[in-house]
């Protein structure tokens, strides 16, 4: 920790000036968002303070079970967020697919990244596990959200074409191929685009944090490059697993389209 200026609580409060500016603008323009802005600012503050103290404890007493528990909570929360986002629109089987794809996709990439690429010691070192799991799971969650949205939309708007393909003797897999491909595209596009602007348009959050805390920019860059590939891999893998299992949930065992594509 060489050379980083410690931000005292008082000076963090000064940063709340930004929130006040936004509130004033919103009030003057008559946009009805004050409540949300205040609530989400306070919520973020509380969540981060709490997380900070928990992490201090977790890093001081590394323990494989605690690390595992935190990863589990992250997964559970991301799955819960996805379910909430599509309130009621997901069938029970599609929900199961979300759980399977999120856990297999992110965990395999996480373990590969930490144990093969970075080679952390001890293997459960929470200082690496927790932040990197956060990035992989968070980005995969966004990817799955985009993917599910596009999949449901595709299956709804193109239902007639899918059914026509079935009538003409296509397997469900062939009948949904174009929907699946465009869904995959929609889900990983943001990740690909964020790689393009990286380092020129903006310095990514993780790198910024490392540089601020005194890490040499070249080390920070090495990490950033590796983590971006990790994120790309995790997003692609979760979305692919979700699609490979997910399209089937729109069909029954008899290869017939389910009457209701998703619950209303």
């Amino acid at each position: 920790m060489n050379g980083i200026i410690d931000l005292s609580a008082f000076r963090v409060v000064l940063a709340y000036l930004f929130v006040i500016i936004v509130l004033v603008i919103v009030r003057l323009r008559g946009i009805n968002r004050e409540k949300e802005i205040v609530i989400s600012s306070l919520r973020m503050t509380l969540q981060l303070i709490l997380t900070g103290y928990i992490l201090v404890y977790v890093f001081r007493y590394p323990n494989p079970f605690i690390t595992g528990g935190i990863i589990f909570l992250m997964e559970a929360f991301s799955v819960y967020t996805i379910f909430k986002k599509f309130k009621g629109k997901l069938s029970a089987s599609l929900k199961k697919v979300v759980v399977i794809s999120m856990s297999i996709g992110t965990l395999s990439c996480l373990l590969y990244f930490l144990l093969v690429v970075v080679r952390i010691t001890p293997w459960y070192n929470p200082q690496y596990f927790v932040p990197i799991a956060g990035m992989l799971i968070g980005n995969s969650m966004t990817g799955i959200s985009l993917g599910i949205k596009s999949l449901i939309e595709g299956m709804t708007t193109q239902k007639a074409l899918v059914e026509e393909a079935l009538i003409l003797g296509a397997t469900p897999q062939v009948a949904t191929r174009s929907i699946i491909n465009s869904t995959f595209d929609a889900a990983i596009l943001p990740t690909i685009q964020s790689m393009v602007g990286m380092g020129i348009v903006f310095l990514p959050g993780m790198m910024t944090g490392q540089i601020l805390s005194g890490t040499s920019p070249t080390t920070a860059i090495a990490y950033q490059i590796a983590i971006m590939f990790g994120i790309l891999g995790a997003v692609a893998l979760t979305v692919i697993i979700m699609l490979q299992l997910g399209y089937r949930t729109f069909f029954n065992k008899e290869d017939q389209l389910e009457d209701q594509l998703y619950k209303v």
Partner: peptide, 20 residues
């Protein structure tokens, strides 16, 4: 009978066929 196999034996023209 497997559905896909059956649909390949028995070809249907639907009432308002979708055009690709």
């Amino acid at each position: 009978i497997n559905s896909v196999a059956h649909r390949r034996t028995v070809s249907m023209l639907s009432q308002s066929p979708a055009i690709f």
